[in-house]
Computed example of a mutant assay.
Amino acid sequence: MTNSANYAIIGFGKIGQALAKAFARKGIKVAVATTRDPESFTSDAAAIGPEIIATTLADAVKADVIFLAVRFAAHRDVAKALPNWEGKIIVDVTNAYGVPPEQMNGLPSAKFVAQAFTGGKLVKGFNHLGAAILEQNPSVHGGRRVVYLASDDEAAAAEIGALAEDLGFVPVKLGGLAEGGLLVQAHGNTWGQLIFQDLVKFKS
């Protein structure tokens, strides 16, 4: 691993479980939590691997890097778990498909989500692939699967890029949330241009 940060995934639906499988594949410990009692999904977490630790939301948000893998509408409920997210990186894996743009005050979805996490550094990423693809080994035909990252904080984007490498992916940085974020977001009834684009990078 490239750093000593500790990790958590909030949300344990198809995307949360796909992310957990990516961590387990590389032997990287990660906490998983939902708004439910962890006993309700402890066995599912254990079935993925010993590195996947079912815990409470209150404990999960103590991590340095938090993957937000909940329904878009639930991001505010997660944000209420802490009064301030300073010093933490939130990886926004949500998709706002079906959410009218006016409900987001005309903002890119990632910027709208970022507003809820006071003091935190938000990176949009890992959301452009469906769970069935995301959970697969990113080593494909001698290449590695690409994940897109967008953030207004270069250091946070670099840290998540390093983690993506640790997980076996190739990170491609798209710039800030207002520019790159638009390429990997859902808005109303439209998808960003890079959503579902399953790209693989081969050694040159």
Rank of each mutant, 00 (worst) to 15 (best):
A46G: 14
E159D: 04
T2A: 15
A114T: 01
V123Y: 00
V147M: 10
G181Q: 07
F72M: 08
V113E: 04
V61M: 02
A81W: 07
V147E: 09
A157S: 05
Q185A: 13
V78F: 03
R76N: 05
K14I: 09
P100V: 05
G120T: 07
G11Q: 02
T34V: 09
V70Q: 05
T34E: 02
L194I: 11
V99D: 08
F117R: 04
T56G: 10
A47D: 11
V172H: 13
G11V: 03
T42I: 08
D153F: 08
F67Y: 15
F196E: 15
F202K: 15
L134G: 00
F23E: 04
L68H: 05
A73L: 15
A63T: 01
A33I: 02
L129H: 12
V93S: 07
A47L: 14
F67V: 08
R145P: 01
Q185M: 12
D59E: 15
N137K: 05
K62V: 07
G188C: 10
R144E: 12
L163Y: 06
T35R: 15
F72W: 13
K173Y: 08
V113I: 13
A33K: 05
L199V: 01
I10A: 03
E159N: 08
R145W: 00
Q103S: 15
N137Y: 08
K121G: 00
G87S: 07
A96D: 02
L107T: 00
L174Y: 05
T55H: 13
V65I: 13
A156K: 01
S109K: 01
L174Q: 11
E179M: 06
G192D: 11
I28H: 06
G106Y: 07
I66G: 07
A74P: 05
S43W: 05
F202E: 13
V61E: 00
T56R: 04
K201Y: 11
G106W: 12
V30L: 12
F196V: 07
A114K: 02
K80F: 05
F202T: 11
T56N: 11
I66Y: 07
A178L: 00
A46R: 15
S139H: 13
S139R: 09
Y148P: 07
L107C: 02
V184G: 01
A18E: 03
A164C: 01
G192A: 05
T190F: 15
W191S: 09
G142I: 03
I10Q: 00
N3M: 13
A186C: 13
V170Q: 06
G188N: 01
G27H: 14
L149G: 09
E102Q: 12
L177Q: 04
G87W: 09
A116N: 01
I160L: 14
F112I: 04
H187R: 10
K29F: 02
G11T: 04
